[in-house]
């Protein structure tokens, strides 16, 4: 009995040390990536190529999800607001929830599972098939050539995707609220415009998605780079990317929201 307790306590200690170790390694990895960014920003073509894979290929899922989330908000918002006779505030509800919260958060979650997992799998596979070692042997630093362009592509793509998600969502809310249910179009837009502030709401939403972009891309690239070079290792790392980045997105969202909208 006593022995088993000791073992489990030792296990906890071991896991903690391991987690701290990984965090330190991940931080050094981020530092190296940032340090090697100069070369890839000079050769911007590499980044453009990765924006295609991270951003353009995530476009469909982002736009379709945005439209549906906006349409659902239109329905639900209308039914709730109708109770208080203030269905003209539907525009405010749809726009504020999208621009402040749902846009950055849901698009980041989708980005993590679409582009983040693909990045992890790709880097993990490059490692498993010795492509990274081969690059190293050709005197080319894989961090500068492979990791850094993907990092910047993710960081650039994320806010653009989030903005498209929100814009699409507002359009979805408009479709349901104004076109389908028949809320007055003028009050839908004007109330929205009166309530949504460019700096407080739109800009803060973009800052949020920028932070999420850094977090998701960092996690995805690190998991791929750190993956054991086997098939199981890569698939495990892909799962971890989605789980870790989802948790980190939600945690960061709480912190950022508390920070940004505290005074309002």
């Amino acid at each position: 009995m006593f022995g088993r307790t000791t073992i489990s306590v030792r296990g906890i200690g071991h896991h903690t040390v391991d987690a701290v170790w990984r965090l330190g390694y991940a931080s050094r990895f981020l530092g190296l990536t940032l340090g090697h960014s100069g070369a890839c920003l000079r050769r911007f073509r590499l980044v453009i190529r990765e924006i295609y894979y991270a951003g353009v290929l995530s476009l469909i899922i982002i736009l379709v999800s945005g439209l549906f989330v906006g349409m659902v908000l239109g329905f639900q918002g209308y039914h709730t607001l109708q109770t208080y006779g203030s269905e003209s505030a539907l525009g405010i509800l749809v726009a504020l929830s999208l621009v402040r919260e749902l846009g950055p958060v849901i698009s980041a979650l989708l980005f993590a599972s679409r582009a983040g997992s693909a990045m992890t799998a790709e880097i993990g596979l490059m490692k498993a098939t010795e492509q990274l070692s081969a690059m190293e042997m050709m005197a080319v630093d894989p961090i500068a050539r492979v990791i850094a362009p993907r990092f910047w592509a993710g960081v650039i793509s994320m806010p653009l995707l989030a903005a498209m998600f929100s814009a699409m969502g507002v359009f979805g809310g408009y479709l349901v609220g104004v076109v389908l249910i028949g809320v007055d179009e003028g009050s839908f837009w004007s109330q929205m415009q009166a309530a949504v502030d460019v700096r407080e709401d739109v800009l803060n939403g973009i800052i949020k998605s920028f932070v999420f972009g850094i977090a998701v891309t960092w996690i995805a690239l690190f998991e791929g780079y750190d993956a054991p070079p086997t098939a199981e290792g890569v698939s495990g790392a892909t799962t971890r990317t989605v789980v870790t980045s989802s948790l980190v997105i939600l945690g960061l969202d709480f912190l950022l929201t508390a920070f940004m909208f505290r005074g309002v």
């Binding site: 726009a95 621009v99 903005a163 929100s166 814009a167 507002v170 837009w189 929205m192 415009q193 009166a194 949504v196 502030d197 460019v198 709401d201 739109v202 939403g205």
Partner: peptide
């Protein structure tokens, strides 16, 4: 769009 149409 977010800045001009949704926001003010």
């Amino acid at each position: 769009v977010l800045a001009l149409k949704v926001g003010n």
